[in-house]
Design a protein around this nucleic acid. Structure first.
Lengths: 263, 263
DNA sequence: AAGTGGTCTAGACCACTTT
DNA sequence: AAGTGGTCTAGACCACTTC
């Protein structure tokens, strides 16, 4: 079933002087399995396999890249660990998607004290295009003045206003995102981004602080002015570690906490 | 060099009916490499190899447990990923210790806006033994009324009071911990715990909120009353997922932020 | 029965560190 | 040169899912 491997691989066997190299010129130099990982990531990024799709089997990939199954396996191991793909024994390996229960809480760390997790409802206050302020442009790796989509919303947990969020999204990627579309789409925004803008969030970096609610924020979250709120400033990245979203959330932590595991 | 493997392993080869099993009765049932991982963890826990020590080489361990080097390798892979051991190519595999630069910031997520990371200085306000309040006992898996060591301290970053912390430590493990010892020990507390109490923190779980400074806290951190502070309630675990420390920190986040990566 | 991921082995060779 | 972890291969067999 496995394809024959007539020529040994140049990386595994560099003594084969001057042989025709098949792969070596992919990145600079790294182990074979990492080069394979790069090739697979490339296919994910290019959309050869879309979120939810099944990847070719390990043996097929091994044949395609002319390496052993074990090497493909090690590449996929790392991708699975980074949550880019998802393995299911007996079924196959699948491109990760935000349309899964498991993915919901990867980027949503706010937990209720009660243990009862309600999925939040969103109310969008503003959705518009504007020119990126300097700070936003810097964080999203844009030129100052480039277009961004700006969103402001309140999230209700069990009908209680709990989160006030502002988002700045790369304007070129999220062109055409409207309030109507956001309102009719139920479920996490990242699901919408994936479906309609071919953009999957891979990882994010947050800076968390405690701040005092200013009068406007206080009225939206129905607390007194100067009430302490948790502020989370997040930059999210898609394939290729490209920043595409800046988000600033203000969380009311009277009935909820931000959960974090230190490993 | 490698020891011979006359009998195949029962897990790898269950058709060997009724053969004398060597390993299988360790946990219930799990893959061989996970059983090996358990045995290695056991030796870490029992102190056969202490923090900073080098583990036997993969081949030695393979011989000891009568499995292949690849299986030992996979066990160690997981331990390395959980930061229980640390691999150094060409040198060996070492028991992780808190006395390393890399380990310092694993449990210290407070970063300065300036980028300049000063190592904090501690001032201990209280160190005493007391009976665990119900909530503390519950989180540390103790009986209500069991002895705990209570510590209260302020941490100064670049001479600015930034963190007010209270700790509750399992009384049996940390018997004999005194203010004098804490004051003369420079460096992170977890280093002291490891050296003098044979207790290595393996992981921790935090609940983070925004709270208002009460008058006493405000005066210690030199802010106005009701100033917003970040509260982090942490439960730390040693080997065997045993909780041994409860810590509640109040962070002044005017010049610092709590850094978190979502993966 | 066939296909998929998961485990285990045995052996070769590479890269890095120390002697 | 010797010892360590790191990579790669080839092949066997297991566990789970689907047909």
């Amino acid at each position: 079933m496995n394809a024959p491997l007539p020529d040994s691989n140049p990386d595994a066997n560099p003594s084969a002087a001057g042989g025709t190299t098949v792969l070596a010129q992919v990145p600079s130099f790294s182990p074979l399995y990492r080069q394979i990982k790069g090739l697979i990531t490339g296919s994910l990024q290019s959309g050869e396999w879309k979120p939810g799709d099944m990847l070719p089997s390990e043996f097929e990939l091994a044949a395609r890249y002319k390496v052993s199954q074990g090497t493909v396996r090690k590449a996929i191991d790392e991708l699975a660990q980074e949550h880019l793909v998802l393995r299911r024994q007996g079924k196959g390996t699948f491109v990760a998607t935000h349309h899964e229960a498991r993915a919901q809480f990867r980027f949503l760390r706010l937990m209720p004290d009660s243990g009862q997790q309600y999925y939040p409802e969103s109310k969008f206050l503003e959705v518009k295009r504007l020119r990126a302020p300097g700070e936003v442009a810097r964080l999203l790796d844009l030129k100052g003045g480039d277009a961004v989509v700006y969103i402001k919303r309140v999230q209700y947990f069990n009908s209680v206003a709990t989160v006030l969020e502002e988002l700045w999204l790369s304007g070129t990627i999220f062109k055409g995102l409207t309030a109507e579309r956001l309102n009719e789409y139920k479920g996490p925004m990242y699901g919408l981004f994936e479906l309609e803008f071919n953009t999957t969030m891979i990882r994010a970096s947050e800076k968390i602080r405690a701040v005092a609610a200013d009068p406007q924020v206080a009225s939206l979250l129905q607390v007194e002015p100067n009430w302490p709120l948790l502020s989370a400033e997040r930059v999210s990245f898609t394939y290729g570690d490209k920043p595409v979203e800046l988000r600033r959330g203000l969380y009311l932590t009277s009935q909820h906490y931000y959960s974090n595991e230190l490993n």
